[in-house]
Design a protein around this nucleic acid. Structure first.
Lengths: 175, 175
DNA sequence: CAAAGATTTCTGTTTTTTCAGAAATTAAGA
DNA sequence: TCTTAATTTCTGAAAAAACAGAAATCTTTG
């Protein structure tokens, strides 16, 4: 696939952004390419287009699949795998948040829970430190719980809530 | 400063988490230490406690200050700088989001805006690709704008909204 | 079941990031 | 102003991550 100048810039920029957010550059580039591409691409087309090693593309595709950000498809009479990116951006964002939550936040929460239990019977732990650990755990639990509820709302509702912006605060009871 | 076992585990875990989110391990550890510590610490105390190089601590403290996550304080008759972490977790979260937005999202938005303008006069760019770039820009602009509004709400309102969870959806007009 | 096609895993190199120690700079006090 | 304390910047070594190419494995088809 031949890249036009603006596609190229988009993909390169996406790679840089990925790196900053802890996403491998190749993974981010492959995803950007699949997002821009109208039709599904196979691994070799990605190799040609991005000029990175075959092994790299393979690993990146696996990674993107494990994040549920791309989907497999096939072409009649062609046994190679083709891939395409989800294009609904709400779904994409929620998928990414969901993934990071499951892989990073949830394990942290479980470490924190153990730590707080330990902390309560650690005689050398200053009271302030214990309180702060508890406060952190509590904050993380409630933020996480809030996200779970919001993510289950239908997309149109989320869209409308977003359009309302700070007007939602009108519905918060005062007192 | 002497660390109790649970403090030590907390700090080490925080360092690991930081790395995954693109934050330098030392920076995350220094922040965790200051968060747990009841009173302000100076650079040398941090060096002793965490066992990392002086230069490292210096760099990390500068970084944390530039993120506005720690504050400087002083002790009478002691010319060294002392540091303490903000302990309000809402404020901390908003500060972090604000920082990443300013340093990473806003620049991306400006790249995207230029790119979309370019895209409109790029004859080699497939229509689908152009549409998707526009959709992405639009989504990022509105998400970013929404965050700006929400971040300006008073903390108690945010807290209440969070407690409401998915009940906020009741206020979304149907139709 | 062999041969070719497609994909994944392994291995070593390159690149990037982290970080300690030294040197340099800045600031305070005599 | 000179001395000493405190901090920051610089430099190179060590560790980690990214990545290409080769080898191995798995799959399909004749």
């Amino acid at each position: 696939m031949k890249l036009s100048p603006s596609m190229e810039r988009y993909i390169l920029h996406w790679g840089e952004m990925g790196s900053r957010w802890g996403v491998n550059k190749s993974v981010a580039q492959v995803h950007a390419l699949l997002y821009l591409s109208g039709d599904p691409l196979n691994a070799d087309e990605i190799v040609e287009t991005l000029g990175i090693a075959r092994s790299n593309v393979s690993t990146s595709l696996k990674e993107l699949q494990s994040w549920d950000l791309i989907e497999l498809s096939h072409v009649m009479g062609d046994r190679r795998d083709y891939f395409e990116a989800k294009t609904d951006l709400w779904e994409m964002l929620l998928t990414i948040i969901e993934g990071r939550k499951r892989r990073e936040i949830d394990p942290t929460l479980s470490v924190m829970r153990k730590l707080v239990i330990e902390a309560r019977e650690d005689p050398d732990l200053p009271k302030t430190a214990r309180k702060r650990m508890e406060k952190m755990l509590d904050f993380m639990e409630s933020t996480s719980g809030w996200y779970d509820q919001m993510s289950r709302l239908p997309k149109p509702v989320l869209t409308k809530l977003m359009k309302m912006g700070s007007k939602v605060s009108k519905f918060v009871k005062k007192g």
